[in-house]
Design a protein around this nucleic acid. Structure first.
Length: 416
DNA sequence: TCTGGGGTCCTAGGACCC
DNA sequence: TCTGGGGTCCTAGGACCC
């Protein structure tokens, strides 16, 4: 059996842990730049605030209903996530961390799963203050389904087990097709047009029909709903095949210098991600674009790819080539809203093909980078960097940021 | 004033090879 | 008039996820 444990309204719940006055009050957490709503407490959901709503559209509601609003505080959420995951590991060694707020658990060999599940859920909530739900079933997709029920119906007390065909079919009948893990907007639309309303209707089609219209991916979902486990537990997280760092700017940028500082920053972040997974980039792509929502302004979207002479993860070198790419595409006369650096060709750093004409002293660069990493790791923010500028007009808007209660000493709560 | 960021997998189609 | 067959690799684009 597989369990899917998921933190309820995770970001909103994190904000509440350190600010209990928010209990019972509607809470929303916003995306970068305070752009749109990405997490909501149950009360906020009750007010009809939808996921992804641009913040300015709920301005009135926020004022009249006293909704508490927060900018994303990933430092806080990441730390709370680690705490939850560490507790899960005390209950079973086989865990797949699926996202910041979700994990799959291998639960074979445990007796009385109903009680064990309750114990897991109870312990996490007690030790971290984060409410969680657990679905347990023979496949990942069914565990996801169970998790929805655990969350939706209070009678389950946050744990729902699907361990018989009878329960499975009942759950399928009560689940709308669009709520199935793996069925997105496009497929939902298509399936509904075929008269398929529930997960149960879907399982009644033939596997070949599903494969024909929804590829092998859809067929896998179909099999999983029918009780056949097709998606295994991945315990070691595989290295990324693609690394992207991009941001929308708090303010539009039209000059080259600040734009180049942002690209240098993103390039350096990409280099850091590469080093952490012991990989190198063989090429990189830089893109910039204007604000697509401002239709009256001239629009420009361009990207440029550069092949690197030698695979690298040195920040200085990646920044250098990223700026070279930027120079190729930068044009005066536009207001840029977003830029990014993407790395798609990634190789392990242990087997790089060197270049006969390489002029860089790589051993020296490697030592330099290591030293910089060490210094920067001592501080919450990088203190040594290259070409990235300091006072950024493009920096993110975060008007409602909460303190880093659990990771920065000066932000810790005081009891007087 | 104001619309996130970061990933994965699969398929189709073109380039290229013998 | 007529133009093989089989394969690989790469990329772009579309679908999905949180």
């Amino acid at each position: 059996m597989i369990g899917l444990l998921d933190c309820n309204n995770f970001y909103a719940s994190c904000e509440r842990v350190f600010n209990p006055a928010l209990n019972g009050q509607a809470v929303v957490v916003l995306s970068n730049n305070d752009g749109c709503v990405i997490a909501r407490s149950n009360e906020a959901k009750g007010l009809g605030i939808k996921m992804g709503t641009p913040f300015y559209q709920i301005d009135d509601l926020v004022r009249t209903k006293k909704v508490a609003v927060f900018s994303t505080n990933f430092t806080l959420y990441g730390d709370m996530s680690n705490r939850v995951m560490n507790i899960i590991r005390q209950f079973t060694p086989d865990v797949e961390i699926y996202s910041i707020d979700e994990a799959f658990l291998a639960l074979d060999g445990f007796s009385d799963l109903a009680n064990y599940g309750k114990k897991i859920v109870g312990t996490i909530t007690k030790w971290t203050g984060i409410p969680v739900s657990l679905g347990i079933a023979p496949t990942k997709t069914l565990a996801k389904l169970g998790n929805r029920f655990a969350k939706k119906y209070p009678a389950y007390k946050n744990v729902c087990i699907i361990d018989s065909d009878e329960k499975r079919i009942k759950a399928l009948q009560k689940t709308e097709i669009g709520d199935v893990w793996g069925i997105g907007r496009q497929h939902r639309k298509f399936l509904e047009s075929q008269g398929i309303k529930t997960a149960f209707d879907f399982t009644q089609k033939s596997s070949s029909w599903v494969r024909k219209y929804m590829t092998i991916v859809g067929e896998r979902t179909w099999r999983e709903l029918n009780g056949e486990a097709c998606i295994g537990l991945e315990q070691v997280l595989p290295n990324k095949k693609q690394i992207l760092t991009s941001r929308s700017f708090g303010n539009m940028v039209s000059e080259y210098i600040p734009l180049s500082e942002s690209v240098a920053t993103f390039a350096s972040l990409c280099a850091g991600k590469l080093r952490r997974q012991k990989s190198c980039a063989t090429s990189l792509m830089v893109f910039i674009h204007t604000n697509k929502f401002k239709e009256d302004l001239p629009q420009y979207y361009q990207s440029s790819i550069i092949e690197l002479p030698v695979p690298t993860n040195f920040p200085a070198e990646i920044i250098h080539y990223a700026l070279e790419a930027l120079k190729k595409i930068f044009k005066e006369g536009y207001q840029y809203k977003k830029a990014g650096v993407m790395i798609t060709n990634i190789v392990p750093d242990s087997c790089i093909q060197t270049n006969l004409f390489d002029g860089l002293n790589r051993e020296k660069q490697r030592r330099l980078t290591k030293t910089l990493d060490l210094i920067n790791s001592k501080y919450p923010k990088s203190v040594i960097f290259g070409a990235q500028g300091i006072d950024h007009e493009w920096k993110m808007r975060q008007n409602n940021l909460s303190p880093c209660y659990s990771t920065r000493l000066k932000d810790a709560i005081r009891i007087n």
